[in-house]
């Protein structure tokens, strides 16, 4: 009994430390986003602003260009996530359901595409999109983001599909459904939680993508992660607006991520149950 109490106390302490550790930078950024520029530089630093100001948010939202980056991010993320699902779901289903002698090679290519460092791809991407006269459009950045999210969707959805017993589909097909109908009517509704988790994680990949966005986007197509970096000029950093922009960048993803957190873990650990 005594031991149990000790374990509980130790656990509690660890959890409290973890909470402080997690929230420390976040709370600092949140407070900083409400500070006036002069207050950013007090020594020693003060956590709570003496005067809460909305100046930083005003600067962000009164600039049409900044607001536009938000919508650019939404557009790029949505399109690339839809692409990822369109390409990824059938492929995942195919991989999960059929035995094919080249399946290993295929898994390898898909995994490798996911694991390749972005820096390897970014220069050819830029030059090719210029040659094809696509610069200034959303196409290069959307394609680049789906390049990361398609393999991810395949990889993750495969795990969800293989959990659905094949007998379900077979039963449906005996009732006269085609394989495609069995997929859409029986299997897809069952993996819906998996699809939602997959789309959130794909969205996360695209929303947070930085290097490709930095190189491939211009004035009109710029996304939020690049904007965060825009408040650093040669001679000056505006920490306040940067904090505000950082929070605006992260809040949507935190909200979506927490909505699907249970399935998220499941998707991320695909393969470990084997």
């Amino acid at each position: 009994m005594n031991k149990n109490i000790i374990i509980k106390i130790v656990s509690l302490i660890i959890v409290i430390i973890a909470l402080i550790w997690t929230l420390y930078p976040l709370v600092w950024i949140i407070f900083s986003s409400f500070k006036a520029p002069l207050e950013q530089f007090t020594i020693p630093p003060k956590w709570i602003p003496e005067k809460f100001t909305l100046r930083n948010y005003k600067i962000f939202f009164s600039n049409a260009e900044f607001v536009r980056t938000f919508f650019n991010s939404v557009l790029v993320t949505t399109s690339s996530t839809i692409l990822a699902l369109i390409f990824g779901i059938p492929a995942a289903y195919g991989l999960a359901r059929f035995n094919w002698k080249h399946a290993n090679l295929l898994s390898f290519i898909i995994l490798l595409a996911r694991m390749t460092p972005p820096v390897v791809m970014v220069l050819p991407f830029f030059l090719i999109s210029r040659y094809l006269n696509l610069s200034g459009t959303y196409i290069p950045i959307i394609i680049a983001c789906s390049f990361f999210s398609v393999p991810f969707a395949v990889w993750m959805m495969q795990g969800f599909f293989s959990e659905i017993p094949e007998s379900l589909e077979e039963a449906a097909r005996i009732d006269g459904c085609t394989r495609f109908e069995a997929l859409t009517k029986i299997v897809l509704p069952l993996v819906l939680p998996g699809i939602s988790a997959t789309s959130i994680l794909c969205a996360l990949i695209s929303w947070n993508e930085f290097l490709f966005a930095l190189v491939l986007t211009g004035q009109e197509t710029r996304t939020l992660p690049v904007l965060v970096n825009m408040f650093v000029s040669e001679k000056n950093v505006d920490w306040g607006v940067m904090s505000a922009a950082a929070l605006i960048t992260v809040i949507p993803m935190i909200v979506f991520g927490l909505l699907v957190q249970n399935n998220l873990v499941k998707g991320l650990t695909v393969g470990s149950e084997k």
Binding site: L123, L127, R130, Y131, N133, V215, G218, M230, V232, S233
Partner: peptide, 22 residues
């Protein structure tokens, strides 16, 4: 058209290199 200072010169160089200067 404006770029962040940190990668402005990269953008110029790459654009010039690609031969499609806008």
């Amino acid at each position: 058209q404006q770029f962040p200072y940190s990668n402005y010169f990269d953008q110029l160089m790459l654009t010039f290199t690609s031969g499609r200067v806008d």
